[in-house]
Write a protein that binds this DNA or RNA. Structure first.
Lengths: 219, 219
DNA sequence: GGCGTGTCAAGAGCAGTGCTCTCGGAAATG
DNA sequence: CATTTCCGAGAGCACTGCTCTTGACACGCC
């Protein structure tokens, strides 16, 4: 059982994270100020350092949160359409990622934009980053389209990727490419690259999702 | 003809930009300090404001430079293989973009990562941003593969895009998607998303370039 | 040539930042 | 009860973007 001190510590940590989330959504990652976060929580900036050793560590915590959040959104979307066809499920997951990005642009920029801290302690973020990929891999495998590539390219992908995604190794390059295209498309929309280029973003996105589904063997 | 004053002004402006480029490559966009740039040029920070009204304007100038730089790299690569097959030319341009990104990661992050200033005066950057797309569009049109989409999706793309890219309107969605995939793939590699995912980055990249070529009708 | 005008670099200064250190009080441990 | 550990507050350092004022220099006009 947690002592009073431990409970207080967890509570304060959560309060700091909550304030940081608010700040992040309001001013973005670059302008996120540890002192402003401290003011919002009602304590002095030096006290925050008892909980997070630096601003970068606070950002890293927010990064992991964001990865988990978008992963949960994708999993929830997949669960909602569990009975439908693979193509419908694939589209639903793609849409959920786009919707999450539109709703949390600062978080999206934090995880899929340029890395702000010195490559943000990659080890900590790696497990959380793959959750969306796992969801997509399960759908593609369920479809079992049989369309794939050759073994040469398959060797370019890390050997444990097919295992964690639950897919055929020969499907891995196409799956990684589809995963890249998903986040690339959402990122381009969010970061303004589609300004004066794509008018109907929903229609365009659904179309891309469809071709990507085909590319991983979903009929 | 330029007066002595104008020449001096142009020279100082270029010196500031050169120092800013160095700083950008060394510490990244987020940590780029206007005062450090001023120190490197050998003047005081307030003097820099005679040439750039704010730090964001300096960054915007660097953004436009970066867009032009990657565009020139793509054009130069295309010129070098002008006589080859469309597929070879397509691959050469893709590779040139990746090579440029690997050589200038900070610049790449500046233009294809999260936008740091408040959407970075989009109007100024729009023309320069499309140069790579124009190069790719010309190659795809030269191939004339005939493979395309339907008119419904074509309407999702801005009506002037086919014109500036010199492509069939019905090819536009696939072209935009390929363009997105190119920069998404390079970005994922640069920003560490392929850590523990893609081992042989060159082989994987070439493979993606090949499938993208097929998707825009290059046989 | 001399003289106003406009441009420029320099310096001081302001509010804000990340981060460190020290200090007193409170909670947990013996 | 005594001691150790933890935590918040405050002061302070070096730095940032940016503004304002001051003094010097080059330019165009008479």
């Amino acid at each position: 059982m947690p002592t009073a001190r431990e409970r207080a510590r967890a509570q304060t940590t959560e309060a700091i994270l909550a304030a940081a989330r608010t700040q992040l959504a309001e001013v973005g990652a670059a302008a996120l100020s540890l002192r402003a976060v401290a003011r919002e929580v009602g304590m002095v900036s030096s006290a925050v350092y008892r909980y997070f050793p630096s601003r970068d560590e606070l950002l890293t915590a927010l990064i992991i949160e964001a990865y988990d959040d978008v992963g949960e959104a994708a999993e929830a979307a997949a669960a909602l359409v569990a009975g439908r066809s693979p193509r419908e499920r694939w589209l639903a997951v793609w849409r959920s990622v786009r919707a999450w990005g539109l709703e949390h642009p600062a978080q999206y920029a934090l995880i899929y934009g340029s890395p702000v801290p010195g490559y943000a302690a990659p080890q900590d973020t790696l497990p959380a980053a793959g959750r969306v990929g796992v969801v997509l891999g399960a759908i593609a495998t369920a479809a079992d389209g049989g369309v794939v590539g050759d073994d040469d390219v398959a060797a370019a992908v890390a050997p444990d990727v097919p295992g964690t995604l639950g897919i055929d190794p020969r499907l891995a390059p196409a799956a990684v490419s589809a995963w890249t295209l998903l986040f690339g498309t959402v990122g381009f929309e969010l970061f303004g690259q589609y300004e004066n280029v794509v008018i109907d973003r929903e229609a365009y996105f659904d179309h891309v999702a469809g071709t990507a589904a085909t590319s991983v063997g979903i009929g």
